[in-house]
Design a protein around this nucleic acid. Structure first.
Lengths: 194, 194
DNA sequence: GCCGTTATTGACAAACTAGTCCAGAATGGA
DNA sequence: TCCATTCTGGACTAGTTTGTCAATAACGGC
């Protein structure tokens, strides 16, 4: 065997993630990163290959943890509509510091558009995972007459993904939990039958 | 008098705006900018003082033109609810190239958060202009029984701003006009009375 | 046409950036 | 204890970045 790493890889990625969420990819230098991660320059390159690869790993990690958290909410919810509501409310429940950090999905979409194949593909996969889960929830909710029968599951799921993205943007600007809750409430109210 | 400029200042800002919308502030170099604007390096610094000032001017110009366009829609609309619907539908009506460019408001919020006072203040002013206009429309729509009486105008306006931001994000990823229209339709349907 | 003013052009400087190299240190197994 | 392996830290490089400077060119009023 040989000398073991002095830092935890996952913790380091988390620190990099926070740094990237603060300023995006371009404006976060490798020096900012290694300082935030508390590791040396060479360790960064040995462990993560480069800045871009570290960013992609941070993005994957961020989205995986979001999926994990969201699916957890879904499982715990009493009804499919409650699951959707809990999802929208989850932003309001985050602590203020976390809430004010940009969502790396939204941020990467703004910074890279569709120009970067890796970023686009990671985001596309996340979006379709969420889309599928939400379609299922909407379909179930429709079956239980919790949402309007006239609503198309696919369109409604897309609407919810869009709503979530909008709330993430609003949250960065410092919107209060109450403001975020009221947005979620209106979105949910709009789905319910007469 | 003296030698006149060989370029149109407003056109130049528009070119810079497009460049910034493609990649954000940090990843757009002054060289990218002067090339996109078709002007020399010194002209850029003489006319706009620096990269940051050019960005702020592009952001202000972008938001002013959005406000102008939106208020135009509002004036032309047959009813306050129609005005809101037209606003949400306007993204779907943009040409594909324009639609896929990031909204500089959303993009600047992601890149700068609240860390930059200038950016934050410009965005805050735009947000409150839109918020006020939407509150007025919602109040009018309520009076005409076009939207649910139970909806609070302030919250509903915020909900609409958030919806718009979400749709802008979705649009960058290449969402079709149909997808964007369906999102707008669900949002509007949700506001209407039983 | 001359002249003061301003625009343009290309060269330049200082700082910063991503990524590499290398020497030394730390580790676990033999 | 010694060794092979891998980690670490600092120096380094090549390229890019923002912003400036100085020389030249173009314009309009006189």
């Amino acid at each position: 065997m040989a000398r073991p790493k002095e830092f935890d890889r996952d913790e380091a990625v988390d620190c990099a993630l926070t740094a990237f969420r603060k300023g995006g990819f371009s404006s976060t230098s490798t020096d900012d990163l290694r300082l935030a991660m508390g590791i040396g320059r060479q360790s960064l390159y040995d462990t993560f290959k480069g800045k871009k690869e570290l960013y992609l790993e941070a993005l994957r990690r961020y989205l995986a943890s979001r999926v994990h958290g969201h699916f957890d909410l879904f499982r715990k919810a009493k009804s499919p509509l409650q699951a959707i509501e809990d999802l929208l409310l989850s932003i309001a429940l985050e602590n203020p510091k976390e809430r004010r950090l940009a969502c790396l999905a939204v941020s990467s979409i703004c910074e890279f558009g569709t120009a970067d194949a890796d970023v686009a593909s990671i985001n596309r996969e996340f979006a379709s995972t969420m889309q599928a889960a939400l379609e299922k929830l909407v379909t179930e909710a429709k079956a239980k007459h919790l949402v309007r029968a006239s609503l198309n599951a696919e369109d409604t799921a897309r609407y919810l993904v869009s709503t979530l993205a909008g709330m993430r943007v609003i949250a960065i600007t410092g919107a209060s939990p109450e403001a975020l809750r009221s947005i979620a409430a209106i979105a949910i109210l709009g789905l319910q039958p007469h």
